[in-house]
């Protein structure tokens, strides 16, 4: 069976906070019965301090789904809602000393249940547009839907392209046949034919602009690229804005349906790829929530000086 860590086993055999919390004022329900994973998270939130005073879970799912739910309730008890929202699925997996790649979606489900519960408390509508496909690359836990989306969005044509954009196929290479099948399918829909000997998409350097930009020009250009993604995102009920550029890192705000959904990391990867192509330099795109606060202070101080 799976190579579960002792922590996963411990949370499975002795789950913490099982059952619904009485008098819960935040409820998040996520999952899909067809996939065999479904989770209801109930929270009791202090209305003055927004501190999560109690958390409980009810899970239909496998060992790691139950363990992820259990550890999530332990992590978030005592946190404010804002702090709880900073908990990522990687945090959940790390707290369990890791999960097998096929099981990472259990940690994603935990994080989504939390977001859904907070949205429920705040009277917002939480929408999740992430669709999960069959796992293709087991080395990096990349599923078929993700690969298909990237092949569409970036007009990928070769297995090497797919590896460059998604990491899929970059490990043991056993999934290259499946990746080729996805390429064949999508390219057929695009009216193209998959050619296994085709050259991969040109490297970033080839598109480099020659004239060095001023700081202002550079930021403007970055914003221009980011703005070009807005129509597409707004069509899906989301939006994106550039918040700050510090060094080679661009901090963006994803809002609406985009914030927090699984697709946001893909969207961010797409923006980053385009930025690197246009700017001909390495640029990292990071959600503004991860912006170091000390940097902001420094900037303000510089401003006053």
């Amino acid at each position: 069976m799976w190579d579960y860590s002792d922590k996963v086993k411990d949370h499975f055999f002795n789950p913490k906070n099982a059952g619904a919390v009485e008098g819960a004022n935040a409820i998040g329900e996520v999952g899909s019965i067809s996939c065999g994973d479904a989770l209801r998270l109930t929270l009791k939130v202090n209305e003055d301090s927004e501190v999560i005073e109690d958390a409980g879970f009810q899970t239909f799912g496998c060992g790691s789904a139950i363990a992820s739910s259990s550890v999530l309730t332990e992590i978030i008890k005592g946190l404010t809602l804002d702090d709880a929202l900073k908990v990522t699925n990687q945090d959940i997996a790390a707290e369990l000393d890791g999960l097998p790649p096929e099981k990472m979606h259990c940690s994603v489900m935990g994080r989504e249940a939390l977001q859904a519960a907070v949205a429920n408390y705040r009277g917002e509508e939480w929408k999740d547009d992430h669709e999960e496909g069959a796992l293709v690359c087991k080395c990096f836990a990349i599923d078929a839907v993700m690969i298909e989306e990237m092949v569409w969005a970036n007009k990928l044509r070769t297995v090497e392209d797919v590896t460059n954009f998604t990491k899929a196929g970059g490990g043991c290479a056993a999934c290259h046949e499946d990746i080729e099948a996805i390429l064949e399918k999508v390219m057929k829909e695009r009216g193209e034919t998959f050619d296994p000997s085709a050259a991969p998409i040109e490297k970033v350097e080839a598109k480099a602009e020659k004239k060095p930009l001023t700081n202002l020009q550079r930021i403007k250009k970055i914003e221009e690229v980011i703005m070009s993604f807005r129509p597409q995102l707004m069509a899906d009920g989301g939006d994106v804005e550039l918040v700050e550029v510090i060094g080679n890192t661009a901090y963006v705000n994803m809002t609406g349906a985009c914030s927090g959904c699984q697709m946001s990391s893909m969207t961010i990867a797409g923006i980053q790829q385009r930025l690197m192509e246009v700017m001909a330099e390495f640029i990292k795109v990071v959600p503004a929530s991860q912006m170091p606060t000390s940097e902001l202070v420094n900037i303000k101080e510089v401003g006053h000086a």
């Binding site: 996520v30 899909s32 939480w126």
Partner: peptide, 10 residues
């Protein structure tokens, strides 16, 4: 049951 708990797709 299928009505009482209808989580959104994840």
């Amino acid at each position: 049951p299928e009505q009482a708990f209808q989580p959104s797709y994840a």
